[in-house]
Design a protein around this nucleic acid. Structure first.
Length: 469
RNA sequence: GCCCCCAUCGUCCAGCGGCCUAGGACGCCUGCCUUUCACGCAGGUAACACGGGUUCGAAUCCCGUUGGGGGUGCCA
């Protein structure tokens, strides 16, 4: 009757914000679950009371929601399941699979150095028959011989010599469980079938396997270790040195569709080579065993390209609505001078020019600010080095714009009559007007911009710039 | 040090023994379009780390070397 249901989990630790690596792990778990018609559940791994910051849990949930990775059921918090871990530890102790250890971290380290620098616990308390006590931890007894191995969906057969595994801690001296233990217990308790996680955790897999075996966990857990996402130096992305907070990408105006799509191309790629495509298609094509093995560089330039594509694919109303946040928060103009209807006129022109939503204000600031912000390089190039032409063009525009038809076509005819008369390229002729009115050499199409600004203000800015020459 | 993993253009992916003169995408360069920028379009640049095998045949399989990464916590 019950076909083997697939159930995967994303298990963030609330010691920081959701970062790019975590988002990718969550995404691949989600893709696998949705592809297999299984479940994707969340587990908050907050066994380390000192490092966990409860307030971050909600931040992580919101980032997942932003990405569109919906989860099944109610998230489980390890901090509320202490009894399960305690019971497991009791079992291990009772069966002789674990023992109490009174060695402090300093002692363990000192003995390791005395041995010749090989790190790790030496089994000092293995046969001492110790019981609970202040500063005592519980260690798992790893067999001295044999191997612990597993077949990874991505990496194939991976095996470890037990002799290279130390007797690791399963319960801290403060009584809280270590994550391997909580992990083994929860995966079994929650009926997890597949563990898809970063390769940085591949070395703890034998510990979890040993624990599961000792605890007689039912079924077999299938692992898939994802290649790490790396920085330009090909090192694992780090919160300290790299720009990895998903929240920061939200603030810069990346679209979640673009982020998720891009993340899906890191370590995996559709066989037909079409990278930018709807999530539903990715779900349909996804297969964990097709995931690559080597680290993938997080290329922001390529992410931006994806984002630009997604922005341009938006309808104009969608673009306007998605941009609003950047139009009101920290915008480079007084809030009261902003007018959404005016923005809507320019929106289509801005939409095809930005790669990030956060860039939107810089394309329309000259409309809402009292004065254009003059870009020095632009001014130098057009108004100083090209002063002669600038003077002539501005004088021409000042006259022509005073009574021409105030439409893009009317302005075009009025200004470019100068280009025709003097056989100068339109590009050169429009530059002084653009810099005078918008402050820069680049921006949305000029005449549409002037229409929005209005005749009076355009003439005022033209006159003001002319006076500076 | 020890353990584990990895190795195709600068980057991401395709390639799963012959279809490879190695394909697509980003980036970069050139041109076209054009009132700037951007978009779009047309081109170009550029890779199977090295050495041995296996095979009629290897980017694809095996071994080694080199290089890179990860782990080595009473963090996860």
């Amino acid at each position: 009757m019950s076909s083997p249901q697939v159930r995967v989990r994303f298990a963030p630790s609330p010691t920081g914000y959701l970062h790019i690596g975590g988002a990718r792990t969550a995404l691949f778990n989600w893709l696998f679950a949705r592809r297999m018609g299984g479940e994707f559940v969340l587990r908050i791994e907050d066994t380390d009371g000192e490092r966990s910051r409860p307030e971050l849990i909600d931040v992580i949930f919101r980032a997942l929601e932003w990405l569109g990775l919906d989860w099944d059921g109610t998230p489980v918090h390890q901090s509320e399941r202490g009894h399960l871990y305690s019971a497991a530890i009791e079992t291990l102790l009772a069966n002789g699979d674990a023992y109490w250890c009174a060695c402090s971290p300093e002692e363990v380290k000192a003995r390791a150095e005395a041995r010749g620098g090989t790190p790790g616990y030496d089994g000092h308390c293995r046969e001492r028959g110790l019981g609970p006590g202040v500063g005592h931890v519980v260690r798992f007894r790893v067999a001295d011989t044999g191997t612990t191995a597993f077949d990874d969906l991505i990496r194939g057969h991976v095996s470890f010599e037990n002799a290279n595994l130390e007797d690791f801690v399963v319960q801290r001296s403060n009584g809280s469980p270590m994550f391997h233990l909580a992990n083994a217990v929860d995966d079994a308790d929650q009926g997890i079938t597949h563990v898809i996680r970063g390769e940085d955790l591949i070395n703890v897999t034998p510990k979890v396997l040993l624990l599961r075996h000792a605890l007689q966990a039912p079924g077999e857990l299938i692992f898939a270790h994802l290649p790490l996402i790396v920085n330009e130096k090909r090192q694992k992305l780090s919160k300290r040195r790299d720009d990895v907070s998903v929240g920061d990408y939200i603030d810069r105006g990346y679209l979640p569709e673009a982020m998720v799509n891009y993340l899906a191309t890191l370590g995996w790629g559709p066989s037909d080579g079409v990278e930018i495509r709807p999530l539903a298609e990715i779900v349909a094509m996804f297969d964990v065993s097709d995931v690559g093995k080597s680290g993938a560089f997080f290329d922001v330039k390529k992410l931006q390209h994806f984002n630009g594509e997604y922005i341009r694919a938006l309808t104009v109303p969608q673009f306007v609505s998605r941009s609003t946040r950047w139009l009101f928060e920290d915008a480079p103009w007084p809030a009261e001078s902003f007018d959404i209807a005016t923005f809507e006129v320019l929106a289509p022109l801005v939409q095809e020019r930005v790669k990030l939503l956060a860039e939107v204000p810089s394309f329309v600031d000259f409309v809402f600010a009292a004065e254009p912000t003059i870009d020095e390089d632009s001014w130098q190039k057009v108004m100083v080095k090209g002063a002669d032409l600038a003077v002539a063009v501005l004088d021409h525009a000042l006259v022509q714009f005073a009574d021409c038809e105030w439409t893009a076509a009317g302005l075009d005819a009025a200004l470019f009559s100068y280009a025709e008369q003097h056989e100068i390229s339109k590009g050169k002729v429009q530059a002084p007007v653009r810099v005078s009115v918008t402050g820069r050499t680049v921006g949305p199409p000029l005449f549409e911009s002037l229409v929005v600004i209005g005749r009076d203000e355009t003439l005022r800015r033209l006159g003001s710039a002319r006076a500076r020459l």
